[in-house]
Each structure stands twice: as C-alpha cells, then as structure tokens.
Design a protein around this nucleic acid. Structure first.
Length: 871
RNA sequence: GGGGGAUUAGCUCAGCUGGCUAGAGCGCUUGCCUGGCAGGCAAGAGGUCACCGGUUCGACUCCGGUAUUCUCCA
C-alpha cells in the first residue's frame, strides 16, 4: 500500500467513527518560549487538555508534522546513522476530548491495524501499565488489561513500568497510563530463535513501537498530588513512517515510498548509489531526511537565520550539505533540486509545500551557495593553520576559532587533518567550546523569583481594544533579575488595557496611577503562557489597592497607524506585484513598520511609487475599521480573509477589515484609515533569497520626515543664495568643481616642477654626494612628494627638508637607496638624532624618514648638522 | 541577548610586527595583432582603504565608538 493511501485510510477510518479531520498545526511554534518546534501530535491540543478552552469537536483525527532535533533519543547528530531516526516525521493521531475513553480507543486501534492495515496479529504486542509503588502508589491499569484480553492473546500482552507506560506532559497538568502497540517485523527464523516479547522496548530496529495510546485520567497538581480528572481524554500517536515500513514489508523507514523517491533523485543528481557503501548510505539518509525538515520549516515561514529556530534550521541544512560535500562529492548546490520530488510526493497531504515550492528552492539554493563558500574559505584557512603548525597535533583552540568565527564544521576539520596525517587536539576544542557556552549563558542569565499570588482571580481579560484606561487589581507579581535589564518586576492584573507583544506588534507602554497619585511606569507588555505580563522597574507601594492602568496613548496611536498601514501595504503588494506575495514577517513599532514578503526581484521605482499611491489612496478614502471579534474560521476565510502560512488559528478568529483588505489579526488598529494621515516607504531591500523587506513610516513620523527634508532643502537653497533650482545649481557647482580640480592639479604639477627645478639647482656636492638641507613651506605629504620626485633617476642624493606647521616642526630626510647601501646610512637614525634639536622624535625607513617636534626654533640647527652625516 | 571575524578598484581578494608615493587577477576603455570559443600584445581609466573619534613625527595597519555583514553560543 502506498504511503499516501495509508495516511488517507487512517484519516478516513476515524472520520467514519465521527471524528473531524483537522489540518496539521504549523511545525514552527511562535509564541511559546519553552518550545521552538512541534515535537508531538498533542502540542496543538494542549489547551483542551489543560482545560483552558473548550474544544468545539470532541473527536478529532489528524496527521501532525513534527520536528525533533534535541533530546536523548534524537540528537541531530544521530540522524542518518541508523535507519529509523528522523528530524521531521509525521504523527498520526486520534483524539477524544472528554468523549470516548479506553474501550473505543483500544478497539479501534486494533481494528485499524488488523483489519484496515491487515497486519498479522501474531506480530503485534501490546503493553499495559503495571502500576507503581512510589509515592503515587498507582494501581495496575486493569481496565485496559481487560479490554486487551478480549482481543489479544495473553502472551502478547506485556507490562510496562512508569517510565514506559505512564505519560506526563510536564511537572503539572493532565497525565495518565498508556498502552503501546509494538510490531515485530523480523523474519520467521529469527522469531523462532528469540521470542519477540523479549525484544519489546529494547531499541531493536525491527521490533518497534508504532502506536501509543495515552489515557488521560489524572491531573498532577502543583504540590505533586494526583487527582482524578472530571472528563477523561484520549491522546494517541502513531509514527507514520514506521507504519509505512511495516505495511510495505521493508526493514527501514528509508526504504518506504516516503523516502525512496527522494533517495532516487539524490542518486540521479549525485551519481551515488544507495545500499552499496555505508558512509554513502548515511550521507544519503541524512540528506533525504534533512531536506524534508528544512522544506517544511520554510513552508511554515521559518527561514534559516542566525538566531533561534531559524538557526536550528540552518544547522540542519548545513549538516546535509556537509555530508553531501564529503561523501557524495557535491561541490555545487544540489539540495534545492530535491524540493520538486518532495512537493510531488507530499504536496497532496501538505499543500503548503506545493504553494511555497519556488520560495523553498530559492532559499535552499542560496543557503547552499553561501555555505559552500564558507567551506571553500575554511579549507584555505585550514591549509594556513596546517602550514604554520609545528608537530603533528593541531591546537584545538585554532580549530575552534575556525569553527566559531568562520563556521567551518569541526568534524570536517578532523577528517581533513586525519587524511593528511595530523591529529586534532579535541580536548582543547572542547575546552574552548565550554568557555563559549559559559560566556553565553552567564550573559543571558535571568533569575526569576517565585510568583507572589495576591488574588485567585485568574480570568484576566484584555480590554485594550476598547479602552486605554481601566481600573485594575494586581493578581500576582514576581521579581526578575537579568544582567542586561537589572532588577525588574513582572505583574499580572485581573484585566488590562495593555496590548501584549504579538503578531509583530510591540507591547504597550504606560503607567499605573495609585490612589495617592503616585505613578509606576509600565515599560513593556508581553504574553507568557496565555497570561499578560507587565514589566516595570518598581512595585506599587500598595499592592492590594486598585490602580488606574493607563496606556501611553500617543505610542498606541502611532503603533495602530503603522499596523493598519501594514495591512494596506500587504494588500497593495498583492495588487501591484501579484498573488505570489505572502507575508513572511512583520514588525510594527510606534516609530516605523517593517514588512517582509516573498517576491523574486527588486521593486522598481515605479512599483514602489504605485504601492505607496495605492496605500495613500486608501488612507484618503477614509475607510472605517470593520472589526469582527469572534467569528468562525470558515466564515472569515469565506469573506476572503488572508491567513498566513505557519500561523495557528483557533476556530473562532478576529478579523480586521478596511475596504477590501481583510486579515485575521489580533493587533490594534485605527478607527479609520484617515487617522494614518500618510504612508511613506523609507527603504526596500532583500533579507534572503526570494524575500524582500519594506520599511515604512506613517502619521507623525512622515510629518517629521518631510519637515526634516524641508529644513535641509531650505538650508541648501540658502547656501546657494536662494536659487530657484537647487538641482541645477549643484550640477553646475559639480561641473565647475571638477574643472577647477583639473586646473589646480595642473598648476600644482607645474609648481612642483618649478620647485623641483629650483631645488635641483641648489644641490651642492659634498664628498660625491648631492646634498641639500632646506626649510620649505609645504606639508608632510608635499615634502614627501617633492623628495621622491627629486630622487627619481638619481642614485647619490641626500636631502633634509624641514617645515613649520601649526607651531610644530617637521623634518624629512631622503637618501637614495644606492647611497644607503653604499655608505650604510639610515634616514631613520639620522632623523631621530636631528629630532633632538626640535624636541621630538620620529622614524621611518632607511631611505626616507620623518620626525616631528614642538620646537620650530631648532630647525636651523638641525639643518646645519645635516652635513655631518655626509662624511 | 553574548563572543569572535570581516568591510581596501565594478567583482574576487593580497597588503607580515605602524613608514615601499595602496597592489594582483578578472572586468572596463583605447590601439594594434589574430578565422577557432575565457583569443594575443600594449597603453590607460578606476580608491574618502565602511564611518566617526583617539594614540603617533607618521595610521589601510594600533585603540575606542557606530553601521553593515558573516559566524558560533544561548
């Protein structure tokens, strides 16, 4: 069975059991500081299990794209070395939110595997939680056991401990026992030798867990106690790639049709052959795996970058490039050519791949290109290190520098050194690495004290769409200390008019007014774990009183103007450039706005003007804000609202409409586009392959901008005697200037020639040496010039020139090189010695040197003494 | 957020511990030669050494700051 059919069958199977098929959440997580990527199917349903929100459907089925790049069993560096680890994978799952429980979950899982997938029952093993004797003192999961006994032979049921069969989300929250289903795909003769039951959960590549059924029935409280949940949930996760391996009768995930088309394409492009040589195989698996992870991330809007999640993506991509470079001899970009095959095979299930294919290819190609360049440069640097190295061991610190500063992979360094018979001092590298980590950690160290809870009211509300002032009560606060900000306080209120940073828009600033009239400034507002946290430098003197919370109105209005302008800009770009324009990032500040979008070429001056005009036409059109705070997602989309790739939306969404521009958005906006006053693009440029960035300003900032420009123009006009046409005047000035320059140059040349002629006349011959010591009225560069000029075509010249500038004395000594060699003279030494008379010092080269001093009165004496060196 | 590196001609880069009147290759312009794929030869133009400040007799070079960019760590 083809993988596409396996996925479709799974979704269809549960749809028939009244499940609603929902799309995969984005793989990249944007507003959870503790998690960068979706790493399990349940991530997007967390809020339902926590009870923070009520799901609209109680039965749901999906396939979730996941990325695991860290953790004990999935270190990035391990992927590719075996046949079953991946960075990116799909998790098939069926979910019950307070609906069915163990009976259905177990029966359906078994039905799907044995009836739909037709997997031989004899190969399947199931595990049941055996209970625990620790302080939780949990009983054996008799309920699950009884259910399994009805359908599975007794000898296929195994018991698992708390580590394997009791699932917890974190320190707190819903948890419960689970049942895993394992499958043994070894050949019959091996099964006969070693019973499969003994290999379950033993990391055997052919006796693997394919499905985990989690039964959430407890809630772990903050004090560590367990309590029964009023409504029980089911959370299941089945590794799609493993299921395909089992169904397609192969021994490796990479031999399923999820990967084989990509592997065939790698073979075609690189002429390498899979399944011949282990090193090559690893490289091919690494590339096949990583191109998936990288492509899906980019489709979700996460581009490779040098920070955060983007940096993880860059590392994954670079790891694949490096394996290709070393083992498949790919010295040119090639991975971007795999994107087509990937989008062909997975584009049906994940349309974002197909829609974003061009962008993914551009970005990957650009990344490959720049990393190959990095490798090239690194190879040269490594050559230098080796060439200047004494002995056979290369200093680990040097290798670290190569890695840290130039991005040259350490394992490649080790490999190349090995080939050349050198050894890498790995300890030195490790030490340098640890130092670097320590530095980073201590710099970003933040110490957070415990929350002080004053009030149990936890249903805080954001009222800032409608008001900028509100009477609030402090619910909890804590002190946070960081190196950068020093001591800060974080406060949570029962309700707040302050907008927390999100959707590209900055958090509100403002102040709290106390009953006695004192004021505490709020410096920033952020959302953390669905709570709105206010930052300040001090705490209010009285904690339990009510405060008047006041948002900085001016900043909020400017920000709102910029946010609305961002929507209009988005619309304008799609109108002017085409429908391929997608928002790729946005930053809305009070002073300016920044908008990143996919587009393949630099915008022309005409296009920029057209975009500006489009936006300004809508501003002068005085379009009113039409806000819909709570409408179903489908309805919003029907109205043509623009949703972003890689953005997670709930079932109910907020839409913001200005004329034809409709977007899903949580930010704050002006009441009418007329409030924006004016929109002005300040710059347009590239941020990555296929991504452009526009920076623009609105309202007051535009006024400031024009008034600044106007002021400058008046100043320029003033300088040009109030000319009517400054451009013409400046052009005329420039022409005149260049003409004068040429004339001056000619004159100076003429003058120098004359001076040179005069000075040559004044030369006297002493001991066969052409000599002159004289004070000139030139600066240091002029003296140098004339001295070198005079020295041309002469091999027995000795010059000492002096000058007085700004009350300081200057001596320059020139001696023909031939003379220097013959008589063993040194202008540097001479100038230093003569420097005494002008109370200064100096130096230079043997044939030309200068000295400076603060006593011009000594010049005469210095010139006088010059003769003394001729003997 | 923290550390390190880079910024020199249109492009790619040299320029060692401060002192050659800032160079090379490619490209460009002009002239001559040449029936063969990156043609050859010769001449020439092209630089605020990223920017600001400091140290020094003297700064592309050293120090501090700013900008841009690369890179590693978080």
């Amino acid at each position: 069975m083809k993988s596409q059919d396996i996925r479709a069958n799974f979704l269809e199977f549960f749809k028939e059991k009244s499940h609603r098929i929902v799309p995969s959440a984005p793989m990249v997580i944007k507003d959870d500081p503790t998690l960068m990527f979706t790493n399990a199917g349940m991530n997007q349903f967390k809020e339902f299990f926590l009870g923070n929100s009520i799901p609209k459907e109680t039965r749901v089925v999906d396939t979730q794209k996941c990325l695991r790049v860290s953790g004990k069993h999935n270190d990035l560096e391990e992927v590719g070395k075996d046949t079953y680890h991946h960075t990116m994978f799909e998790m098939l799952g069926n979910w019950s939110f307070g609906d069915y429980f163990k009976e259905e979950a177990i029966a359906w899982a078994w039905e799907f595997l044995t009836e739909v997938c037709k997997i031989d029952k004899d190969c399947l093993y199931v595990t049941v939680f055996e209970g625990s004797t620790d302080k939780d003192n949990l009983a054996k999961d008799e309920e699950a056991l009884e259910l399994w006994r009805k359908i599975v032979a007794e000898d296929k049921i195994l018991y698992g401990n708390k580590k394997d069969n009791f699932w917890e989300m974190g320190d707190q929250g819903p948890c419960g026992p689970c049942s895993e289903i394992h499958v043994d795909i070894r050949p019959a003769e091996e099964k006969a030798k070693v019973p499969g039951a003994s290999l379950v959960n033993q990391d055997h590549p052919q006796v693997v867990e394919i499905w985990n059924l989690v039964f959430m029935q407890y809630n772990r409280r903050a004090n560590g106690d367990l309590e029964s949940l009023p409504s029980k949930h089911v959370d299941t996760g089945m590794g799609f790639e493993r299921l395909c391996m089992v169904m397609q009768g192969v021994q490796s995930n990479y031999d399923t049709d999820v990967f084989t088309p990509i592997i065939r394409e790698i073979e075609t492009i690189t002429s390498a052959k899979y399944a011949k040589d282990e090193a090559v195989d690893i490289a091919i698996r690494v590339i096949a795996d990583h191109i998936r992870a990288v492509s899906f991330s980019i489709a979700d809007g996460q581009l490779p970058s040098n920070t955060g999640a983007g940096y993880v993506i860059r590392r994954i991509l670079r790891r694949a490039i490096r394996y290709g470079f070393t083992f498949l001899d790919t010295k040119e970009p090639f991975m971007y050519r795999l994107v087509k095959v990937l989008s062909d095979t997975m584009g049906d299930a994940f349309p974002e791949l197909r829609d974003q294919r061009q962008l993914i290819e551009n970005v990957v190609k650009e990344e490959e290109h720049s990393f190959l360049k990095t490798l090239d440069q690194g190879l040269v640097l490594l050559d230098n290190i080796v060439a200047s190295n004494k002995g056979k061991t290369i200093d680990g610190r040097k290798a670290f520098e190569l890695y840290d500063t130039f991005g040259f992979p350490i394992d490649l360094t080790a490999l190349i050194l090995g080939e050349r018979g050198y050894e890498l001092d790995e300890k030195g590298f490790e030490i340098a690495m640890q130092e670097q980590k320590k530095r980073s950690r201590s710099a970003s160290e933040v110490s957070k004290e415990d929350w002080v809870v004053l009030d149990s009211d936890n249903e805080q509300e954001f009222v800032g769409y409608d008001m900028l002032e509100a009477s609030v009560k402090l619910v909890k606060y804590r002190k946070v200390t960081s190196k950068k900000e020093g001591e800060q306080f974080q406060m949570v209120f029962n309700l707040t008019p302050f907008y927390p940073e999100g959707g590209g828009q900055v958090g509100d600033k403002g102040y709290l007014e106390l009953v006695n009239g004192d004021v505490v400034y709020i410096l920033d507002t952020k959302r953390e774990n669905n709570e709105i946290v206010h930052f300040s430098k001090e705490l209010p003197a009285t904690l339990t009183d009510k405060f008047k919370a006041v948002v900085d109105k001016k900043q909020r209005q400017r920000t709102a103007a910029n946010h609305t302008a961002t929507h209009l800009l988005h619309q304008a770009l799609r109108e002017v450039l085409g429908e391929h324009v997608e928002q790729k990032g946005s930053a809305v500040h009070s002073k300016y706005l920044r908008f990143d979008f996919s587009h393949f070429a630099k915008l022309t001056v005409d296009e920029l003007r057209e975009v500006e005009n489009f936006v300004n036409a809508r501003i002068s059109g005085n379009l009113p804000l039409v806000e819909n705070r709570n409408i179903p997602m489908e309805e919003a989309l029907e109205q043509g609202a623009m949703a972003l790739f890689g953005e997670k939306y709930g079932d109910a969404v907020r839409t913001i409409r200005f004329g034809q521009s409709v977007e899903l958005c949580g930010g704050t906006h002006v009441k009418n586009t007329g409030d924006i006053w004016h929109f002005k693009i300040k710059s347009e440029g590239a941020v990555a392959a296929g991504i452009r960035r526009i920076e623009a300003i609105t309202s007051d900032a535009v006024k400031d901008f024009y008034s600044e420009n106007n002021k400058m123009l008046f100043e320029i006009k003033d300088l040009l005697n109030n000319t009517a046409d400054p451009v013409k005047s400046v052009t005329a000035l420039q022409e005149e200037n260049s003409l004068l320059k040429k004339q001056v140059e000619a004159l100076l040349k003429e003058k120098a020639k004359n001076l040179k002629g005069e000075l040559l006349q004044e030369l006297t011959e002493v001991n066969g040496i052409q000599f002159l010591a004289k004070q000139l009225s030139l600066d240091a560069a002029g003296i140098k010039d004339i001295a070198f000029e005079m020295g041309n075509n002469k091999d027995n010249l000795f010059l000492l020139f002096a000058a007085e500038n700004d009350g300081k004395a200057l001596l320059s000594c020139y001696i023909s090189k031939e003379l220097v060699a013959q008589k063993n003279l040194n202008a540097g030494t001479i100038v230093r010695e003569l420097g005494k008379y002008i109370q200064g010092g100096g130096g230079g080269q043997p044939f030309f040197a200068t000295a400076g001093g603060k006593n011009p009165n000594g010049i005469a004496e210095a010139l006088e003494k010059a003769k003394g060196y001729l003997g």
